[in-house]
């Protein structure tokens, strides 16, 4: 099954980091694992100007060091782009499910 957005422009989304310690190791692993589940290129960056990094790379996500209150942008392209962006934004908004 394909998402509606297939073949269209990249899907974008954003969410704010709620954890007082920022996007630390454990959430970074959770985010990476979630991203890996989608057939799409999934990228994230801090704010509007950070460099896009591969959300499926645990090393890259952990080195991103997004702090408390920072906005993380999510961008995805591919068959599951819509679901991927929705899932990642949801995870960040739910504060990585504790």
């Amino acid at each position: 099954m394909r998402d509606a957005a297939h073949d269209a422009a990249p899907v974008l989304g954003e969410a704010v980091v709620r954890d007082p310690t920022g996007l630390h190791a454990r959430p970074a692993v959770k985010l990476t694992k979630l991203a890996k589940g989608f057939e799409a290129t999934v990228e994230i960056r801090t704010g509007q100007n950070g460099a896009w990094i591969n959300a499926k790379s645990p090393n890259a996500v952990m080195k991103m060091k997004a702090g408390y209150g920072e906005t993380i942008s999510v961008r995805a392209e591919g068959i599951h782009a819509n679901s991927a962006v929705a899932a990642l934004v949801g995870l960040i908004e739910r504060d990585f499910d504790g």
């Binding site: 190791a25 692993v29 990476t32 694992k33 890996k36 589940g37 499926k56 645990p58 090393n59």
Partner: peptide, 11 residues
């Protein structure tokens, strides 16, 4: 931790 994270996706 890194290896296991990568492995969890079936890599």
């Amino acid at each position: 931790v890194m290896a296991a994270t990568e492995a969890s996706g079936g890599a």
